[in-house]
Design a binder for these strands. Structure first.
Length: 280
DNA sequence: CGTACACCCTGGCCGC
DNA sequence: TGCGGCCAGGGTGTAC
């Protein structure tokens, strides 16, 4: 489900309820999501105080007073819900998929629900997070200073990949998914099939700024709600209303003076949406 | 080595 | 209304 803006929205929703609060109990309802939970998962987090919530790429990072960090990935359909004291879980989630339940010392519960179970959780030492198998090797954050046209030029050299696949590669830039790659390429007027290493530095500059812009705007909008995504407080994102190409096959291109319609092709097994007239 | 593809899983939607 | 087929925001392991 969630790409970087959705995970960031989840983080800002969970932080006020979790930060500075003790995890009084934890329960997992199945031994594994996508992967097995780390050994003694519940035992290791029970009694810990939550320090700060962070995010890296599409990973939610929950720093604990035990000097361990809980790493959570929401896969395609993962959702955290905050249940206030006496309140009921959201009616639109199937309780059969409530896989992890955290009980907090402030009487709130946090439920992790994930029908497809593509999400997963891990624990890693907070002082050596970058060595964790999921976090090691991630590329720069799209909103950070290390993501630049110089970096792209460097890392794309020698690769024979189209730009769509390159931007989905988390080692090249961390946190983009199918939606925001499609949107960024449209705004940068780059055809998704373009061989990445052949894009000029000037066009890479434009691409870097459109990636930054689309991600920043999506975070401001609270992410995109397509099917079941909602922030932890239940709020719906609304960036989906600003999609220029994603999910708009056969609909008119929104650029002024363009009479073309949006096309859909499949690249590396996923849909790419683009305007054949505006993106070269 | 890099790239391509199958696969993990459920649910919603579409067409018949 | 029921059912099969297709599609979905991701990441990994394996095969070339």
């Amino acid at each position: 489900m969630p790409e970087l803006p959705e995970v960031e929205t989840v983080r800002t929703g969970l932080a006020p309820v979790m930060e500075g609060v003790k995890i009084s109990a934890a329960k997992i309802n199945r031994p594994n999501l996508r992967f097995a939970f780390p050994p003694d998962f519940c035992q290791r987090i029970t009694g810990a105080n939550v320090l700060r919530l962070h995010r890296r790429a599409k990973y939610l990072l929950i720093g604990l007073s035990t000097d361990e960090t809980l790493i959570a990935h929401l896969g395609m359909s993962g959702r955290f819900s905050i249940i206030a004291p006496g309140a009921e879980p959201p009616a639109d989630t199937n309780p059969a998929h409530d896989h992890v339940i955290f009980s907090l010392s402030n009487q709130h519960r946090i439920i992790y629900n994930d029908p497809r179970r593509f999400g997963f959780m891990d624990l890693a030492p907070s002082h050596a997070l970058e060595a964790n198998r999921f976090l090691a090797g991630l590329g720069p954050e799209p909103l950070g200073n290390h993501f630049s046209s110089q970096w792209l030029k460097e890392i794309l050299a020698g690769k024979s990949q189209n730009i769509k696949a390159a931007l989905l590669d988390q080692r090249i830039v961390a946190g983009l998914g199918n939606i925001y790659v499609c949107e960024a390429l449209f705004r940068a007027a780059i055809h998704p099939k373009t061989l990445a290493k052949r894009i000029s530095e000037q066009r890479l500059d434009k691409l870097v700024s459109t990636v930054r812009d689309v991600i920043a705007k999506a975070i401001e909008a609270g992410g995109s709600t397509l099917r079941d995504y909602a922030a932890a407080d239940g709020a719906l994102g609304y960036f989906q209303h600003r999609f220029a190409v994603y999910g708009r096959e056969n609909q008119p291109c929104l650029n002024e003076n363009c009479t073309s319609t949006i096309k859909r092709i499949v690249q590396s097994g996923r849909s790419s949406f683009y305007c054949p007239h505006c993106q070269k």
